[in-house]
Design a protein around this nucleic acid. Sequence first.
RNA 1: GCCCCCAUCGUCUAGAGGCCUAGGACGCCACCCUUUCAAGGUGGAGAUCACCGGUUCGAAUCCGGUUGGGGGUACCA
Length: 507
Amino acid sequence: MSAIRVRIAPSPTGPLHIGTARTALFNALYARHTGGTFVLRLEDTDVARSSIAYEKDILDGLHWLGLRWDEGPDVAGGADVGPFGPYRQMQRLERYREATERLLAEDRAYPCYCTTDELEAERARQKAAGVPPRYSGRCANLTAAERAAFEAEGRRPAIRFRIEPGVVAFDDLVRGHVEIDASALGGDLVIVRADGTPLYHFTVVVDDAAMGITDVIRGEDHLSNTPKHILLFRALGHAEPRFAHLPLILNPDRTKMSKRKSQTAMSDYIAQGFVREALVNYLALLGWSTGTEEEVLSLDELSARFDLAAVNRAGAIFDPERLAWLNGQWIRRLAPDDLVDRLRPFFEADLVAGRIDRLPSDEEVAALLPFVQERLPVLGAIGDLVGFLFVDRVELDPALLVPKRWDVATTRQALVAARDLIAANGEVSFDHGALEMALRGLAEQRGWKAGDVFMAIRVAITGKTATPPIFESMVALGYARTLDRLERAGAALDALDGAFGRQESAR
RNA sequence: GCCCCCAUCGUCUAGAGGCCUAGGACGCCACCCUUUCAAGGUGGAGAUCACCGGUUCGAAUCCGGUUGGGGGUACCA
C-alpha cells in the first residue's frame, strides 16, 4: 500500500473562498489521519484573472487556519518546497507542452481551427434544435492541406482531446460507484487554448499524475467532469487516482454558496473576529460528523477521527449562527495570554476607526478578561464591550440614563448620591466588594431598587444598557474617571429639567 | 434540454432491517442563576424520516418509480 498523497489546488483568481478552505481542510485532515503528504499547487493558468494579491490572500488564509502543507509554495511569491516542483502551473508549461505533443503524435488530440464565434453559433443552433450542446468534431479529421489552409489564413488552433465513445466508471470514495457515458461529455475537449496556454481539465491531470497524487478530494461540482480527467489519465498512460467528491456548501436557498448570497471570503470572517479553531471546527463538521455526539473538536482531534467514508453526500447550508456559537465556545477556551494577543488587532482597528481614543496595554486587557471572555461572540465585539474604558467621553442618551419607571429627578438624585458616597469613601475603598456594599446600602436607605441604581450608574459610565458587570467596570475605569462620569451624567439630567414634564408624559 | 448527484426537526447531523413512540447540536420559547448583557443549568415546542409502490414477520434504513432540489454541460477553475 503506497503512501497517500493529496492536494489542494486553488486558483488565485479571487480571495480565499470558504469552500476552498473547507476542501483544503478535508485534504489536510485526510493526510494527517493517514500519515500522508499534503501538497499545495497554484492553478494560475487563467492569467487574465490571476494575481499575486489573491495568491497571498489564499496562502495567508490557509496558514491562518493552521493548515500546513508538505509541498508547494509556502508564502505568496515564495520559493517552492518539495521534490515535484514547480508548484505553480504557469511555471510548468513545458510539461503540458510535452504531454500535448504526445497526444498529438498519437492522434489522441488534434488542432481545432474553429473560432469562438463559430463555436458559439454552433451551440446556439443546437440549443434552438433542442439537442445537447456538443462540439461537432468539424476539425477532427482535417487533412494536412486543410490545416495548412487555416494556418495560411492566420488562424491559430486550439488543441482538442478526442473523447472516445464508451462508459467511464469510477468508485468515488464518498459517492460510491458512478458511471457516465462519454457521449454526455460534450464532444472533444479543448485542452490548450489558441494562445498556447493549457486549460484546467488538462493541467489538473498532468500535474496530479506528475505529483503522484493518489487521492483527489474536491467539491462535488467536479463530479461530472471526472470522466474527462479519467480519459486523460488513460490517454497519457498514467494510473488514475482515487476520487472523493465532497458535498457542496450552500447558500440559504440551497444553491452553491456564492459571494452574492453569502459571506464567502475567509478574510471577512477573520476581520470579524472568528477564531481559527471555530472555523476549522465548523467547516469540518459541515458535511462530515464523527458519528458521536462530540461537537467541539480541535484540529488534532478532528484529524484523529477523520474518515472519508463518513462524509455526507447531501449539500449543507452554511449556518452563521452555528459558527458563532462554536466561536464563543472556542474563545472561552483560549488561554488569557493568547486571547490578549488575538484581541490586539481589534483594538487597533477600533482606534483607527475612531471608536476609541487610546490603545489599552496588554496588562489592561488581561485584567478585563475574567469578565469579558465569556461575553465575546466574536473578537470584533471587544470594542462594544469595553470601548467605554478607552474613550475620553461617552455619548450619553438621556432616554437611556433614566431607568424604566424612574423619573429624571430620581435618577439625578441617585447619580449624585452615588457619586458623593463613592467620593466620601475615598479611593482606598474603590474596589468591587466595597462599592457593592456601599451602593446596595444606599439603595436600601433611600428605598430604591438596587437594580435601578446600578442601571443608572451603568449608563452614566458606559453610555449603554448592556455592559460587563458594573463594579468590575467601575474599577477598570478608575476612581477619578468614575466620579467624573457620574457628575457629567447628573449634569446632563440637570440640562433636561426644562423638558421634565414632557419626559414624564411621554412615558 | 441532456448527463450526473442528492433527499431525517427551520439549520448541521445521528441512524448502516427490529435498540426509533427517530437521538444530539445550533436557533427558538420558558424557568433557574442574576445589577444589565452574556455565559451556565433545567425543561419545552419542533421531523407522519419528500411522495408512491415493492421486498420482509418487521423499513428512516433494501429495491423501483415519482416529485423536488442541486451540480455539470466554456479556448473559467
